[in-house]
Structure formats: structure tokens, C-alpha cells
Simulated scan of single mutants.
Amino acid sequence: MIFNILSEFQDGITTITINRPTKLNALNKATIKELHRAFKAADEDNETRVIIVTGKGEKAFVAGADISEFAGFDKEKGAKLSAKGHELLFDFVQNLSTPVIAAVNGFALGGGLELAMACHFRVASENAKMGLPEVSLGVIPGYGGTQRLPQLIGKGRAMEMIMTGGMINAEQALSYGLVNHVVAQDELLTFCDDIANKIKKNSPKAIAEAVKSINAGFKTGVNGFKKEIKGFGKCFGTEDFKEGTTAFLEKRKANFTGK
């Protein structure tokens, strides 16, 4: 039996791999549901401190959605498709308490780039190419692309990318701020592991509050500063805070438990 998703845990890091290489790891309904379950399980696992998501093979992270599944939809079905995708995967990933790194290997197009943008940050291989080609199909990005891309690279560049439907390469993505790093493909997962190992040394409780505070600043009608103040205060009631401050005063490394 071939699974659409592979999930592997090692040393505090869960790596989720989209396993549809013959379809360039395209997202269909089944894959989105499996991704939801995999992310949920990793987030609820106390041993998992960081999640890395990538695509199987060397060609693609995710080369888009499975167009055949929605080509015959009307406007009501289209809206439901978008809403369900946000709920199960894209908004879900953005708001996870566990840090999520997208290891973008190859093409990240349409829903693939939208998944990468929903992650907390992105690292790309040198051969990566990214774009939102939806307008060439007579539709707009429906999994957060029109919102997250401007937040990451600015309104003008986002308008150009979405209106032209064109692709940018890894170096352009780096210069735009769409990705944090560009590395050789054979070094991609090792590089992401190195970042994950730095993250997992820190307090899971504090990181979860930081994610909430940062996300709040991008939500309409939400005061990010007030969210930060509340999150800052909450940290003082955790065992991680006691351990972190005690370790600092005792001049030793902290051993955080995520409590």
C-alpha cells in the first residue's frame, strides 16, 4: 500500500513527507486530510519539538492542487473547497504551537506555495521554483495565497506574481523574503535539521506563545501588542520559565520540559 504521507520522528523532530512523486506531490482531498492528521499528531506529541514538511523526490515540494477534483465545481462548491482547505490544513498549520519549517525542494506552485507560506518559515533548495498560477486557470489562489504572499513579500510584488501567474526562482524568493535560506538540494534536510536542533533547545511553552503573538499582528481587528502582553504574562506561570531563569542564574543549560 502506498501512503500519500510519510511521517518520521527522530530526536525531537518529526519530518512529514508528501509522498506522491509521480504526481509531483500534488494536493488532492485525500492528501490534505492525511496532512491534517499528520500535523495534528505531531503537534499533540510531547516529544516533537519541531516539524519539518517536504516533498518526496527531487522535482517538487508540491506542484499545486489536483485540478481534476474541482474542474466541474460551481461557485458554492468552490467556496466550500477553499473554506475546508483553510480549516484542515493551511490555517491549521499556521496556528500550530509546534514550529513548522517548510523544506521546499523543487516546484512549490499554487497550493504548494500556499502550504509553504502557511508554515512558520521556509528553506529552499537551489532548484526551487515558486508561483501562484491560478489566474491562468480562471480562478484566484484560494488557500491563503492572496493574504500570506503580500504579508511576506509586500503588496506590489505579490500583485505581480499573482497577476502574471509566473514563477520565481530560489534566489528571487530569497531576495523577496519569501524564504529564509537557499541551500543545495542534497543539503536541504540537513540544514533544516540544524535549525530545528537550535529551536528545540528552547522552551516549547515560550515558542508556542511567540507563534500566537506574531500571528496576532497579522490578523484584522486583533491587537498584537495586547496578545504579546498576555502571552508574556502566561509564560511566568510555566515550569519552563522557572527552569530557564534558574538555569541562567546557575550558569547552566536549561532542560525544558514544555510544561
Rank of each mutant, 00 (worst) to 15 (best):
Ala65Asn: 10
Pro141Asn: 09
Gly233Val: 10
Thr22Glu: 15
Glu243Ser: 12
Asn197Val: 10
Gly224His: 01
Ala206Thr: 06
Glu160Cys: 06
Val179Ser: 00
Pro133Gln: 15
Ile195Gly: 03
Asn28Ile: 09
Gln94Arg: 14
Glu76Ile: 15
Lys227Leu: 07
Asn105Arg: 05
Glu126Val: 01
Leu96Gly: 05
Met161Pro: 01
Gly145Phe: 01
Gly78Asp: 14
Thr257His: 11
Lys227Asn: 12
Ser7Val: 01
Gln94Gly: 11
Ser97Phe: 02
Phe39Thr: 10
Phe232Tyr: 15
Asp45Tyr: 12
Ala79Arg: 08
Tyr176Gln: 10
Glu8Met: 13
Glu47Gly: 13
Thr238Gly: 00
Ala116Asn: 00
Ala71Glu: 12
Met130Ser: 05
Phe256Lys: 06
Asp91Asn: 05
Thr54Pro: 06
Glu250Gln: 15
Asn180Lys: 05
Glu134Asn: 05
Cys235Leu: 14
Ile153Trp: 07
Thr257Asp: 12
Gly165Glu: 06
Leu189Ala: 04
Ile51Gln: 12
Thr257Cys: 11
Ala208Cys: 07
Gln172Arg: 05
Ala216Tyr: 04
Thr15Tyr: 01
Glu114Thr: 10
Glu126Ser: 09
Gln172Leu: 04
Leu188Tyr: 03
Asn223Arg: 15
Phe92Val: 02
Asn169Pro: 00
Leu109Cys: 09
Ile168Leu: 00
Ala41Gly: 09
Thr238Phe: 07
Thr15His: 01
Arg252Glu: 08
Val100Trp: 03
Ile162Asp: 07
Cys119Asn: 11
Leu27Thr: 03
Lys253Leu: 13
Ile101Lys: 03
Leu96Ala: 10
Asn127Leu: 00
Gly85Val: 06
Ala124His: 00
Met163Tyr: 06
Thr14Ile: 07
Lys23Gln: 13
Asp193His: 14
Tyr143Phe: 15
Met159Val: 10
Ala41Ser: 15
